[in-house]
């Protein structure tokens, strides 16, 4: 037993020595260091520049709190809407083959690819009086321009692909045979979804929701077209920067980054748990 353990240790040490001699290993390490520095240095610099007093003062600023809260609420609403409408679509894409599936998948990915101000302009173009949908929305009292509804619409638009793609991958991981067996045991399609598919896919749905929310929290380009006011956190940071300069925008940015960090921490926790469960 101890001899086997000893051999393993020798082999592992040998592998490490070989790895250390491998020039590709050092190339990869150097590239990794550059990338990590590229991401971290500006962020750390920005987060360490504001004084504690400035951060405290920012936290007391009602406008800042209101904007961060609005960012979280609208992004959360976008995640919930994505969950309700995106889950059936993700299931359809994961489970069924049909003509035009690739086109549908490309359409879902469009919001990732197109410039985000264009998203705002596109949404506004259907929400105006010149468009039947816009006239219908106005008839039932839905306003897009400069409203929370408009914010939620635009954040759902940009966050939806992240939710659908994550949940689709989650459904695809579940063997269809589990659903077949469930049906053969007497469960209807609905009962099978709630008793088999959902318990196995909920973690992907939570991760998808967090990704959608994180994407929505960070959105600026589309938001600024549709609703400069009420002001979400990225717009407030932009306004502080243009009106007062770098020093006044940094504390708000720090608080937004901390909120985003919590979101990504949650994301990692759920991702790690999934791997542990597997």
């Amino acid at each position: 037993m101890s001899s086997t353990a000893g051999n393993s240790a020798v082999i592992a040490a040998g592998q490490r020595r070989y790895q250390h001699r491998d020039p590709l290993f050092w190339l990869a390490a150097a590239c990794s260091a550059v990338i990590v520095a590229f991401i971290l240095v500006p962020l750390v610099e920005m987060m360490t520049q504001p004084t504690v007093a400035a951060l405290k003062e920012t936290l007391m600023d009602r406008d800042v709190i209101r904007s961060i809260r609005l960012s979280m609420v609208t992004a959360g609403a976008a995640a919930v809407i994505s969950l309700v409408f995106g889950t059936p679509l993700a299931y359809l894409l994961a489970r069924h083959r049909f003509p035009g599936k690739k086109i549908l998948e490309s359409i879902i990915d469009l919001p990732i690819m197109i410039p985000h101000p264009v998203v705002g302009i596109a949404l506004l173009s259907i929400a105006g009086r010149n468009h039947p949908i816009g006239r219908l929305m106005q008839a039932v009292g839905i306003e897009i321009m400069g409203t929370v509804t408009g914010l939620i619409a635009v954040l759902t638009f940009v966050g939806l692909p992240f939710y659908i793609n994550t949940v689709k991958a989650g459904f695809a991981e579940i063997s269809p045979r589990l659903e077949h067996v469930s049906r053969s045991l007497g469960a209807s399609a609905g009962a099978t979804f709630f008793r088999v598919t959902l318990p196995l896919a909920w973690r992907h749905m939570v991760v998808g929701g967090i990704m959608c929310m994180a994407r929505a929290v960070s959105e600026f380009g589309a938001v600024v077209i549709v609703a400069y006011h009420p002001m979400v956190a990225p717009v407030m940071i932009y306004e502080r920067f243009t009106a007062y300069g770098l020093q006044y925008s940094q504390p708000v940015a720090v608080w937004l980054i901390l909120v985003c960090l919590v979101l990504f921490l949650l994301l990692r926790v759920f991702s790690l748990d999934r791997k542990a469960a597997a």
Partner: peptide, 11 residues
């Protein structure tokens, strides 16, 4: 539908 066929399956 499968749930009304009374068929058991083992994969």
């Amino acid at each position: 539908p499968p749930e009304r066929r009374g068929v058991g399956i083992v994969y």
